[in-house]
Computed example of a mutant assay.
Amino acid sequence: MAGAWPDGMGVIVGGIRIRHVKIPVTDLARSVGWYRDLLELVLAAEFCEEGSLRGAQLMHPSGFGIALREREYCSSTPDLTGFDVVAFELDSVAELERVAARAAEFDCVHSEVVDRGEYGAFLDVTDPDGTVLRFLANNPLHAGRFVGVDAADSGAFTLYDTPKL
């Protein structure tokens, strides 16, 4: 069966894709501006509770969205400081460089573009609340191929092809 998972199971729902990622923020207006500027998103919706603005939905013309919700009104008030909650796949390292330049233009905290050879390249950009957005290019992870990664404290890593699970 074309497109079947390696264990022979078919896809249950065709055309499934991630619609948006919801991120808790401490200052909704600041974060809406930050995400709009960096990712060229458009405000698509606002969410009020009893007349008070608590969240927003931002969309990209390609169809992905970022939903933002005031942290104090999220269940368990999650703090994602330092955590890369989402990764965006870009077509090339040159596109990573363009995102890095855009991040610098808007004074966003960001890493350098790191090229890890066969494991691809990445760029991390940190939002105003410390949540990390990861941007990838040439990443070897995709459906139909298994890649194991063993990372060392030094930052070095090795790849393996036999699952441990």
Rank of each mutant, 00 (worst) to 15 (best):
S52D: 10
D129V: 06
C74L: 04
R30M: 02
S154C: 04
R145K: 12
Y119K: 12
V113C: 03
G155S: 09
V149S: 14
R145G: 08
V99T: 02
F88C: 07
R116S: 08
A87C: 10
R98D: 01
D161M: 11
T77D: 08
N138I: 11
D127F: 00
L136F: 00
G63A: 04
C108I: 01
V86E: 06
R71S: 05
A103E: 00
T81Y: 06
T77F: 06
H110A: 03
S75D: 14
D37I: 09
F47A: 07
E95K: 13
D91I: 10
D115N: 06
L123W: 00
L90W: 06
P61S: 11
D84F: 11
L39H: 04
Y119T: 15
T81A: 11
G15Y: 05
R30Y: 04
D150I: 04
P6M: 09
R145W: 06
A104T: 10
E112I: 05
E50D: 15
T162C: 09
R102F: 01
G10M: 04
E46A: 06
R17E: 12
F83Y: 13
C74K: 01
S154I: 02
K164G: 10
A143W: 07
R98W: 01
D129G: 03
F88L: 05
E112L: 09
S62D: 06
R19P: 15
L80K: 10
A56P: 02
A45D: 08
A151K: 14
A45F: 07
A29N: 10
R36Y: 05
D115W: 05
D27T: 04
M9S: 15
D129Y: 03
C48M: 10
